[in-house]
Design a protein around this nucleic acid. Structure first.
Lengths: 205, 205
DNA sequence: GCATTATGAATGAATCATCATTCATTGTGC
DNA sequence: GCACAATGAATGATGATTCATTCATAATGC
């Protein structure tokens, strides 16, 4: 049973069509049931294809999760770097990082769930994740902070690595909370709130 | 084959002995291989008992994970409240929260791994977690911040909930990083670093 | 004290369900 | 009618859970 009639499409398109259909479908299924509770047949069903077809595009269930991550992360980092290059002020850069982070995950709840929850569901993935994109991401923040310290905008009596972890941790927590919350609210605006505190601290002057 | 001779032990002790032995062993196994990749037989083996015995103490593998969490969280919250009652200054309270948080997890790596990684490995657990102790924990932080706002120590132009999430997120990130890092360093001292930034922000004056 | 029986904790082999993965078969475009 | 994509039923492995059985100890009767 095909999803919907599309037989006529003259382009031989569907080659990579199906690839992304599987990724999309898998993201939804993983988000809803968790990686280990998701059956490959669920993914296939939601993508409107047969179980076996999945294996024409992916070597294993694991590889699907990896691909979801690799794609999203690569895209995110690339786009991020581009945006950052346009800016000079380290302060503006940090702002941009925050809003990109929340924008991106805030606009795709399923992807956000896979990132926040499933990707961490095993130390195995975590370590691969950690080795790959994550460290890189933290490093972008860190070096931005250092820039700001050199230029005198930021305090120099604190360690840039710690700052980076704190900012990342704060954003991350915003996302996790947003995912778990029953109320639905826009995530992106939280960037300002986070920055307000991250920059100025919570002490009264 | 019994583990080792112990026939002579006169106390009938072992009743709850085995219960905690299983919990301890499970914490190790879960930490090392992840919940879904851990076999009940691994847990039993490490605890030095037969597979079936596990089911005399726990209804299911799930229940083991739950118990690990329930125990640790209850203990943590109780101890935390006690410590906080001794203090008046909201600022000191936040400090105490941070160091308790990092102390506790920093002194039991396996438990930390289960908390940071495994517990979040499924939205199911996450939501239960969220409903139970986690919300409560966040709330302790939030109300402490509010206290400080009323007494004038903290800025009033920021939302206490956000502050709470930021502090929690920051601590959480410190723990996660510590777990994933190959270098081993003491976690607890990070509390000061976090507080320095959380309180004062990163902007130069 | 000694033999005899009862208890229930502990065992671990067997059961049973669940899926990831494969592959013989069918369909399709050229 | 070929080359290749897609199918989905069958396969095989895995591992949680069960349960008939063992056995150390305790209780009882003498």
């Amino acid at each position: 049973m095909a999803k919907a009639g599309r037989k006529s499409s003259p382009t031989k398109s569907n080659v990579s069509d199906k690839y992304t259909a599987i990724l999309r479908s898998a993201t939804k299924v993983f988000a809803r049931k968790g990686f280990f509770n998701s059956k490959v047949s669920d993914i296939a069903a939601k993508a409107g294809i047969a179980d076996g077809t999945v294996y024409l595009y992916f070597k294993s269930k694991d590889e699907i999760l990896h691909s979801i991550f690799d794609r999203a992360m690569a895209e995110f980092i690339t786009e991020g770097r581009q945006e950052l290059e346009k800016l000079d002020d380290p302060l503006e850069k940090l702002h941009k990082i925050s809003s990109l982070h929340l924008d991106r995950l805030g606009s795709d709840r399923d992807l956000a769930i896979v990132f926040q929850i499933e990707l961490r569901g095993s130390t195995k993935f975590m370590q691969e994740f950690s080795a790959a994109g994550f460290a890189e991401y933290l490093d972008v923040i860190r070096s931005t902070v250092e820039e700001g310290q050199k230029s005198g905008v930021f305090r120099t009596d604190i360690k840039a690595v710690i700052c980076a972890k704190i900012l990342y941790g704060s954003l991350d927590e915003m996302v996790t909370n947003w995912i778990l919350s029953k109320r639905s609210y826009p995530l992106a605006p939280m960037a300002d709130e986070v920055m307000k505190i991250f920059l100025g601290g919570i002490l009264a002057k």
